[in-house]
């Protein structure tokens, strides 16, 4: 049995302007000890997916359908109270900005203790020991002293470590990290990614990393899911996505990724245009207005939503172009440009 499985998850928000289809039919699965990277532009539905898995969407405002199976339990139809019990213990989340995700009035230790005591009926001194232990494990020096400090006394990287300690305090089996390094500078970013890799190995948890930074997923992920306009448009093993991508959007993402091993004078290749409005998703393939190859599909891209089809060995692509055509394009036009660039 797979540990986490999403089947056709839809998260829609009815608004005065129309139905916002933030996540529109997303399916994937994830095993313990594995890492899935979800990549996409702002507004592609990454964070909405993670909040949906945790059941954090406010009832009444979001319409959620589909199935989320976590360790044999279905979460979409479960009662909010049941899902609440699972949060923290079974699944937890690391937020993007640890300063705003920590309460400014309580010490870091207090907050880790509280997180632990929600699920464990232990005394304060036991919880405190646990908090100090957790802070030590995420690499905070002199945790016995730092445990009584307030979040604003921590540096950005330390704060993200403390946030990770908080999320891990109840030993969750599924950890969702929503842009865990976006608010950090590059050196600290690398440290935090190392830390997450170590901790994942230690706790054997399933990890979902949500980011718009392909560099981050390249370092950590086993599988990568590329989202666009609320849908998965390419999904596969990390090597497939980096070395054999087949969707024009993924090509665009790779082309717009800054690389330190290249000359600074060379320009990035940005994707033209901006992400679609999720109220008015373009007909046909959501990416077709920005896709340089949309005219190669005899108009199908403009009218028909492409299906997510397997090209080989678990590598799925949502594109109207023929498999051979995509591969030729990648080998002959895209890859040489990316490499010589």
């Amino acid at each position: 049995m797979t540990f986490l499985e999403l089947k056709d998850l839809k998260v829609h928000f009815p608004t005065d302007d129309g139905l916002v289809k933030s996540v529109d039919g997303l399916s994937f699965s994830l095993e313990r000890g594995k890492t899935l990277g979800i990549v996409g532009e702002s507004g592609s539905g990454k964070s909405v997916t993670s909040l949906g898995i945790l059941g954090l969407h406010k009832g009444g405002r979001a319409k959620i359908s589909g199935e989320i199976w976590l360790d044999g339990e279905e979460l979409v139809s479960a009662t909010p109270e049941h899902v609440r019990r699972l949060r923290g213990k079974k699944m937890a989340m690391i937020f993007q900005d640890p300063l705003s995700a920590m309460h400014p009035y309580y010490t870091v230790g207090d907050q880790i203790m509280e997180a632990y005591r929600i699920h464990h009926n232990v005394s304060k001194s036991v919880a405190r020991k646990h908090a100090i232990d957790m802070l030590g494990r995420v690499g905070i020096p002199t945790p016995g002293k730092r445990v009584d400090d307030y979040p604003h006394l921590f540096s950005g990287g330390m704060r993200q470590r403390a946030m990770i300690a908080m999320a891990l305090s109840c030993d969750p089996e599924l950890l969702i990290a929503d842009e865990p390094t976006t608010a950090l500078d590059v050196t600290v970013q690398a440290q935090i990614l190392d830390l997450m890799r170590e901790l994942q190995a230690e706790f054997n948890s399933a990890l979902i990393i949500i980011t718009h930074d392909l560099g981050v997923v390249a370092e950590l992920s086993d599988d990568i899911l590329v989202m666009y306009g609320g849908k998965c448009i390419e999904y596969g093993a990390a090597e497939d996505i980096f070395y054999r991508p087949e969707h024009p959007y993924t090509w665009g993402l790779l082309g717009s990724m800054p690389r330190l091993d290249r000359e600074r004078t060379e320009r990035l290749l940005p994707i033209k245009g901006s992400p679609p409005s999720l109220i008015n998703v373009p007909d046909g393939c959501a990416f077709h207005p920005r896709c340089p190859y949309a005219d190669r599909t005899e108009g199908k891209s403009n009218t028909e939503v492409p299906a997510l089809l397997e090209t080989e060995g678990g590598h799925m692509v949502r594109c109207h172009m023929a498999k051979t055509e995509r591969r030729t394009l990648w080998e002959n036009e895209i890859k040489p440009v990316l490499e010589t660039q």
């Binding site: 909040l51 945790l54 954090l56 609440r84 019990r85 699972l86 949060r87 923290g88 213990k89 937890a92 989340m93 937020f95 900005d97 705003s100 995700a101 920590m102 309460h103 400014p104 009035y105 309580y106 509280e114 997180a115 929600i118 699920h119 946030m163 908080m166 999320a167 305090s169 109840c170």
Partner: peptide
């Protein structure tokens, strides 16, 4: 605010959020 979401993501109940997260502010 995000710290309320963070508390909820760790399984905090409604009353806990009102008394520990909202009221102090």
């Amino acid at each position: 605010r995000e710290f309320v979401d963070a508390a909820r993501s760790l399984g905090a109940r409604g009353p806990y959020i009102i008394f520990r997260e909202v009221l102090p502010n």
